[in-house]
C-alpha cells in the first residue's frame, strides 16, 4: 500500500475506545510504510491516539478536527 492508497478507518459514532480498537485491528494487518487515517467523533480519541503513538513509536503525521470529525493520520514505522 502506498501513501496514496492510505487506508481509512471510519470509527465515527463509536464511543471511546472504539476508535483505538478499530486501529488495533487494522494494525495487525499493517506493514511499515502503510498510512492509516482514522476518523472518529469521540472526544477522548485525541488523547488516546497520542498515548498510542507514544507507546508504539509509530508516526503521527496529522491530528486535526474537521467540521464533523477528528482525523488522525498515522504512518506505520515501528512494526516488528
Amino acid at each position: 500500500m502506498s501513501e496514496k492508497e492510505k487506508k481509512v478507518i471510519d470509527a465515527r459514532g463509536l464511543s471511546c475506545p472504539g476508535p483505538i480498537t478499530n486501529l488495533t485491528k487494522a494494525y495487525r494487518n499493517a506493514k511499515n510504510g502503510d498510512v492509516l487515517e482514522i476518523w472518529a467523533t469521540d472526544p477522548g480519541f485525541k488523547s488516546d491516539i497520542k498515548a498510542w503513538i507514544e507507546r508504539t513509536k509509530n508516526e503521527l503525521v496529522d491530528l486535526k478536527e474537521d467540521k464533523d470529525k477528528i482525523i488522525a493520520v498515522i504512518k506505520i514505522t515501528a512494526k516488528k
Partner: peptide, 10 residues
C-alpha cells in the same frame, strides 16, 4: 489489554 486503560469503556 489492547486498550488505553484497564477496561475499554472509560
Amino acid at each position: 489489554v489492547p486498550y488505553p486503560r484497564a477496561y475499554p469503556a472509560e
